Simulated assay, not measured.
Amino acid sequence: MDVKRLYVDTTTTLIAMEDEVDRLVAAWRRERPDLDVEPLEVLSRVSRLARHLDRARRLAFSEHGLEPWEFDVLTALRRAGTPYQLSPGQLLTQTLVTSGTMTNRIDRLAKKDLVERLPDPSDRRGVLVRLTDEGRDRADQALAGLLDQERAILAELSRTQRGELAGLLRQLTAPFDNIPG
Rank of each mutant, 00 (worst) to 15 (best):
V42A: 05
L43W: 04
L43S: 00
S44K: 10
S47I: 04
R48A: 00
R48Y: 00
L49K: 10
R55G: 13
R57D: 08
R58T: 03
R58I: 11
F61Q: 08
E63V: 07
G65E: 14
E67D: 06
P68L: 15
E70I: 03
F71D: 01
F71L: 09
V73C: 04
T75V: 09
R78P: 04
R78T: 02
R79E: 11
A80N: 10
A80M: 10
Y84W: 03
S87A: 14
G89D: 14
Q90L: 13
Q94M: 10
L96F: 01
T98M: 00
G100K: 05
T101S: 12
N104Q: 03
R105E: 12
K111R: 06
K112S: 02
K112P: 09
L114A: 07
L114P: 10
E116R: 07
R117E: 10
L118W: 10
R125H: 13
V127S: 05
L128W: 07
L128S: 05
V129M: 03
L131W: 06
L131I: 05
E134Y: 02
G135L: 07
R136H: 02
L143N: 10
G145E: 09
L146R: 14
L146V: 02
L147K: 12
L147E: 13
E150P: 13
E150M: 11
A152I: 14
L154N: 15
E156I: 11
S158H: 07
R159E: 08
Q161S: 07
Q161W: 09
R162F: 02
G163N: 15
